[in-house]
Deep mutational scan, measured.
Amino acid sequence: MDALKSAGRALIRSPSLAKQSWGGGGRHRKLPENWTDTRETLLEGMLFSLKYLGMTLVEQPKGEELSAAAIKRIVATAKASGKKLQKVTLKVSPRGIILTDNLTNQLIENVSIYRISYCTADKMHDKVFAYIAQSQHNQSLECHAFLCTKRKMAQAVTLTVAQAFKVAFEFWQVSKEEKEKRDKASQEGGDVLGARQDCTPPLKSLVATGNLLDLEETAKAPLSTVSANTTNMDEVPRPQALSGSSVVWELDDGLDEAFSRLAQSRTNPQVLDTGLTAQDMHYAQCLSPVDWDKPDSSGTEQDDLFSF
């Protein structure tokens, strides 16, 4: 819950932080000083300027060897085509990944977070970031790969997607708890209302004896509580940590079903599988986004697919 609360507080303090972009060759504004600060901008989305290598189908939802083989196929196909790589912007948030063309600003792909089953910074092609997700059109699994400016960037994108998945799962947990509370309150309110109706004398007997209905007592009954809980029953509950912020979080049926399955089948359902080692994760978390744009010590960066 700490990640969720800190993310909400950060967004309320400075929503404009989320509009910064990394990996864009110096076009961005001043960047936060450390990885923790940038992680807090996830709610509205972190932007990464990358190059799209392509996509291939895979048979399993996750796995280092599986993704490595898929990336190898994608890279080989991209090299064989001889075409310049498409420059894209990857927007990562707890909602998922939005992929747009840098030149036309046209939407290429919009992947809900619950469809993503794996992401990684490839070991062999260490400047490549990739994720595996279920197609929104059918049940097939797709591996999408992107060329980053350097290994640090690939690791940073991988960690960002993993963190977005974690925050999304926490949102789901909060929403589920809130819905259970509202359902319980609604049920209790309905029981109270039913009890009051059972003990209320029939209207005919009131008229016969000349008694008047006590409207004041009726007004004191917990009807307002019942209506408050039943009027918006169809509205999706939102985490309290975000009250007053500009973010509107809505959970669709697909996300609810997917996270429910994860909660039942996995020990740590909030953790998205990645190909990063503990050492890689520690190294990337210690980086400032400013470091992502620094040239690798191995030599001059080449803006070309064939540089790796």
Rank of each mutant, 00 (worst) to 15 (best):
A3H: 07
A3E: 12
K5H: 06
S6L: 14
L11A: 03
R13G: 09
S14Y: 06
S14I: 00
P15F: 01
P15R: 15
P15E: 00
S16I: 06
W22F: 15
W22T: 13
G23S: 02
G25C: 11
G26F: 06
H28S: 15
L31P: 14
P32T: 03
E33S: 10
D37K: 09
T38M: 11
T38F: 12
E40A: 14
L42N: 02
E44C: 06
G45M: 15
M46Y: 08
M46P: 09
M46R: 10
L47T: 01
S49A: 11
K51F: 03
K51C: 11
Y52Q: 00
Y52L: 11
Y52V: 05
V58P: 14
Q60L: 14
P61F: 03
P61N: 11
P61C: 11
K62M: 06
K62N: 13
E65M: 10
L66I: 04
S67H: 10
A68I: 01
A69G: 09
A70F: 07
A70I: 05
A70Y: 04
I71V: 08
K72L: 13
R73F: 10
A76I: 06
A78D: 15
A78P: 10
S81V: 03
G82M: 04
Q86L: 15
Q86R: 15
T89Y: 14
T89G: 14
L90G: 15
L90P: 12
V92H: 13
V92D: 09
P94I: 07
P94N: 09
P94V: 12
G96H: 13
L99G: 15
L99W: 12
D101R: 15
N102D: 09
T104P: 00
N105Q: 04
N105L: 02
L107K: 05
E109I: 02
E109L: 00
V111R: 14
I113C: 01
I113N: 00
R115Q: 09
I116P: 04
S117I: 14
A121P: 02
K123T: 14
K123Q: 13
H125W: 03
D126I: 00
D126L: 00
K127T: 15
K127W: 01
V128H: 08
I132T: 13
A133G: 15
A133T: 14
A133H: 13
A133I: 11
A133V: 05
Q134S: 08
S135L: 14
S135W: 09
H137S: 15
H144T: 09
H144D: 14
L147M: 07
K150I: 03
R151S: 12
K152R: 02
K152W: 06
M153H: 07
M153T: 11
L159R: 13
L159V: 02
Q163W: 00
F165D: 07
F165R: 01
K166G: 15
A168H: 01
A168K: 01
A168V: 06
F169D: 01
E170L: 02
V174M: 00
S175K: 02
K176M: 11
E177R: 15
E178F: 06
E178S: 15
E180W: 12
E180F: 10
K184V: 08
Q187L: 04
G190L: 13
D191T: 10
V192K: 14
G194R: 00
A195V: 07
R196Y: 01
C199E: 11
T200K: 09
P201V: 03
L203F: 11
K204H: 03
L206R: 06
L206A: 09
L206Y: 06
A208V: 04
G210K: 00
N211Y: 07
L213A: 00
L213P: 09
D214A: 01
D214F: 02
E216M: 10
E216S: 14
E217H: 02
T218I: 04
T218A: 14
L223Y: 01
S224G: 02
T225E: 08
S227H: 06
N229T: 06
N232Y: 09
M233Q: 14
E235F: 04
R238M: 05
R238E: 02
R238K: 06
R238Y: 01
P239Y: 00
Q240M: 00
L242W: 01
S243R: 11
S246N: 12
S246V: 00
V247W: 10
V247Y: 10
V248D: 05
V248C: 06
V248Q: 03
W249E: 10
E250F: 03
L255E: 06
L255N: 07
D256L: 06
D256W: 00
E257N: 10
E257C: 07
A258Q: 13
R261M: 12
L262I: 08
A263C: 11
S265N: 00
Q270V: 02
Q270A: 02
Q270P: 02
V271K: 04
V271R: 02
L276N: 04
L276R: 11
A278Y: 08
M281D: 08
H282L: 14
C286G: 09
V290M: 00
W292F: 02
W292R: 12
D293R: 01
D293C: 04
K294Y: 09
P295R: 05
S297V: 02
S298C: 07
G299F: 00
E301S: 02
E301T: 03
Q302C: 08
Q302V: 10
D303N: 05
D303L: 07
D303I: 05
D304M: 09
L305V: 04
F306D: 02
S307F: 00
